[in-house]
Amino acid sequence: MTERAKPPREPISAREPVVFIVEDDESMRRALTNLFQSVGLEAEVFSSAADMLQSKLPDVASCLVLDIRLPGLSGLDFQAELARTNIHIPIIFMTGHGDIPMSVRAMKGGAVDFLTKPFRDQDMLDAVTVAIERDRKRRESDRIVASLQVHFQTLTPREREILALVSSGLMNKQIAAELGLAEITVKIHRGHIMKKMDAKSLADLLRKAETLGVRRAKS
């Protein structure tokens, strides 16, 4: 069964980060819960990877404190499963029986840290701080890209074509020649593109095109 560090209250604040703990040892779950609550962090605890997979997770900045050795799906296999299902949550591994190959596999899989029990409380808190900040930045980046994609979808095929050529460094005259258009027509299209992409300047437009991965089609 899923254990919650605090009595259930819905919804969890959209601004409040959450630390998920997957650990089969009850005393360790309790100790970690008390540690995180002592610094004002929300915590949700699970006794197995399967329990967490079956739960609806809040859409907030978060990280996962994960034991390597678990009943059923191991911590390392759970890390791989999350990657396969495109769930991007920073992971801090902990183990009482660590070895170098295990830690190398964890770090290659993108883990933030690999802590050997018994670890210092401050080491865990430092790792969680780094992990939550990493997730917050990823979420902000995803939000920006999603917003740009909404704007990009409003462009016509011709405008997208011109944006790709602009992003490759071509001037209006060159774009007109390449597409067989009048230069004034290209200027009009560029004006529409600037407005639809909510670009404040050419440099701003180029940054947005780069973020979206807009590229000139190869001949």
Results as ranks from 00 to 15, higher is better:
A177W: 02
S141A: 15
A177I: 07
L165N: 09
E161A: 11
G191K: 08
A177M: 09
V130H: 05
T185S: 15
S141F: 09
E161P: 06
E140S: 07
I162W: 08
S147Q: 10
V186N: 06
R160A: 02
S168F: 04
I144C: 00
L155D: 04
I132R: 01
P157L: 09
G191Q: 07
I188A: 14
D135F: 01
E140H: 10
K137G: 03
T154H: 11
L181D: 13
T156N: 02
S167R: 01
G180M: 10
G169Q: 02
A199K: 04
E178F: 10
G191A: 06
R160D: 01
A182W: 08
I144T: 02
M171D: 12
A182H: 13
D198C: 12
R134D: 14
E140V: 03
R190K: 15
G180T: 09
I132S: 05
K173T: 13
Q149A: 12
P157K: 11
Q149R: 15
H151L: 06
M171N: 09
L170T: 00
L163S: 07
S147K: 08
L155A: 08
T154S: 12
V130L: 10
P157H: 04
G180F: 10
D142T: 10
H151K: 04
S168I: 00
R138P: 00
H192D: 14
L179D: 05
V166H: 11
I162R: 05
E183A: 05
F152I: 01
L170E: 01
L181Y: 15
K195S: 12
E178N: 12
M194R: 11
R136K: 15
A177G: 12
T185D: 08
I175R: 07
V150A: 14
R139Q: 09
E183C: 04
L179Q: 03
E159F: 09
A177D: 11
E183V: 10
V186L: 06
R134P: 00
S201P: 14
K200W: 11
A131R: 01
H189N: 14
A199L: 04
E178G: 12
K200V: 14
I184H: 08
H189S: 14
I193W: 11
R134M: 15
L165D: 12
D135W: 00
R190Y: 13
K187T: 11
E178V: 06
V145A: 10
E161F: 07
P157G: 07
A182D: 14
R139I: 05
S147F: 03
